[in-house]
Design a protein around this nucleic acid. Sequence first.
RNA 1: UGCCCCAUGGUGUAAUGGUAGCACACCGGUUUUUGGUACCGUUUGUCAAGGUUCGAGUCCUUGUGGGGCAACCA
Length: 556
Amino acid sequence: MRPDAPNVPAHFIEQIIQEDLASGKHKRIHTRFPPEPNGYLHIGHAKAICLSFGLAEKYNGSVNLRFDDTNPEKENQEYVDAIRRDVQWLGYHWNGGEFYTSDYFETLFQYASILIKKGKAYVDHQNPETIAEQKGTPTAPGTNSPHRERSPEENLQLFEEMRAGVHPDGHCVLRAKIDMTHPNMHMRDPVIYRIKRAHHHRTGNDWCIYPMYDFAHGQSDSIEGITHSLCTLEFEVHRPLYDWFIQELEIFPSRQIEFARLNLDHTVMSKRKLLRLVEDGVVDGWDDPRMPTISGLRRRGFTPESIRTFCDRVGIAKRENVIDFSLLEWALRDHLNRVALRAMAVLDPIKLVVVNYPEGQTEMLPSENNPEDPEAGVRMMPFSRELWMERGDFREEANKKWFRLAPGKTVRLKSAFIVRYVNHTVDAQGNVNEVHVEYFPDSRSGSDTSGIKAKGTLHWVNAATALDAEVRLYDRLFADPTPDGHADREFTEFLNPDSLEVRTHCKLEPSLGEAPGETPYQFTRLGYFSLDSEKSKAAGHPVWNRSVTLKDGWKG
RNA sequence: UGCCCCAUGGUGUAAUGGUAGCACACCGGUUUUUGGUACCGUUUGUCAAGGUUCGAGUCCUUGUGGGGCAACCA
């Protein structure tokens, strides 16, 4: 999809496009991304975005951003703004333009009138329950409405009365006249217009009737000259209706093609369920770093590149799928490993005292900013007698497989010196307090003439100049791989109680004090982190989010 | 007792009638001043039964399994 993307074989939709281009059916392709502005975009939308935008990019076509805003009760401007921001952040531009289904309300009204005149639509005065009953079931045919045979003239007048506000909400609907015995439920005289006196975020109170999805979507595609209208599998059964309207109205034949939606394990993906997590206060808003929303992933420290790579990797097919969360993590690590600056931070600090290092002395030691990128340069780190080290890097008893500090062990302090265990102190509870080591002056990093070999390398932070920070560690939001896959249990029952761990008084190397907002860092040996600017502002001290851990290959 | 879609290692996805490949995960090794990265390697798969064909993951039939469809939601 991207110019720098690996050469992946063409999936079935791309093959259709290639054929349409080769046969001359279309000179140029035109796609669209059509979200309803009733919630925030999530990683599943990212797949759809990468598909429709990516295809347009690759084949020099156009792509529209269209807000499918036919249900004013659920939609608002906040969501429109969030969606625009998220698509842009992913790195895409709607070169075909920005549209709203509400732009077409007048045209759609005229289309409906055409159908009425052709005797292909009628006004039904029955209540929703009766209409539902007459619809039949998937295994039993429906029956005709008593209003089905009204004349086009009467229907036209009634429909115009509906628009004019003569009838109260729910008093009647406009229905397409197709076939109440059709094996496809969607073809059994679907409702195409309803009366709803609701304030629309764009058209205000201009309308009191609104078209249904099926009567708006295909026509909107057609009006915009969309050649390939890509959507998820659940709309497959709508396609005959989509085509029926286009045929009856004799308008540009857009083609709907369906693909399988993305499912990620250990999370939920429906807007309804995500909304519930937000409303119940289970998470810190739509952009909580644990949410699978684009805004949540952004705050978590994901990069647009990593999300696009992820979407490339999951592929496009018609088979139901559940993608491992670890694939998303892999995509992030893959990108961040190449670009993230390295820095040292100690999340669970204990004191490390270099007993033979002169008191009051400090020296500056260079450390590379990114071993994967020599051009990233080096920075100077202060080193002195008292340092912070990670509690987990010391054990009072250890075997041969333990490369870190313990009685009798020797390790290198990253970018500094090799040190050897001397002794350690414990507090009243028996917790290790301080670890004392001696250093070898001739083992200085870069000019080591000591000849000493140390198997382990530890990160550290100079105590006197360390910055205090809060660091938030995240884990899967749900403990179960498929929280909404249990018929008899609520998805909320599977929430992971340990999905957020807040660490305070973490020690950061001083260079992190100047960290610009969005820059991703790798805290050496710990993972990738990014500053949470808004949280920091609110808390009055730096708050960092762990985006993802480093792969931990140690099985000790 | 309907209609539609789908079925390839643990996961995802290729092979378009001609050697079942790739990625992630897993496991093992080499390198390493990150138990990271990089590099190398091992293990693991065509839902079933018939049929067509010189040849079937691919085409046909019948099963089996999974998903979707009965909002005045999208």
